[in-house]
Amino acid sequence: MSRVRSYVKPLDGVVVAVVLLAALLIWLVPLLGAAQGQTVVVRTQAETLTYPLAEDRVIDIESGGYHLHLRIEAGTVRVTDTDCPNRLCQKVGTISRVGQVIVCVPAAVLVSIDGEADYDGTSY
């Protein structure tokens, strides 16, 4: 233990403190303002689709050679299944608040929540 302590220098603590403080601040800021979202925005390589968050539905997407199945349910959205090997988008779980996102890098898909109800249910 004393060997470990001999390695640690005062500025190490400062670096760690700054990193943790930054994490705390960035975590707190969106919580203050984030409201329940209105619209699900799905951006793929080819198109941008919008859906109302209030209506339950299943969305199938193909992008970058991968398939994603999204489910809008009870005001939240999540990726229920994907053939992308990472499955990170699935592990994110459900999102519902403005500014929250689910990203799938291999398929180049971004699912985000918008505040304004400017959806029309079509792609543009």
Binding site: A23, I26, R43, G99, Q100, V101, V103
Partner: peptide
């Protein structure tokens, strides 16, 4: 992705770093 929403991950990533 043209959105600042991804920064929602930053606290977790900073914490883990």
């Amino acid at each position: 992705y043209g959105t600042a929403g991804v920064f929602a991950y930053l606290p977790v990533m900073l914490l883990v770093s």
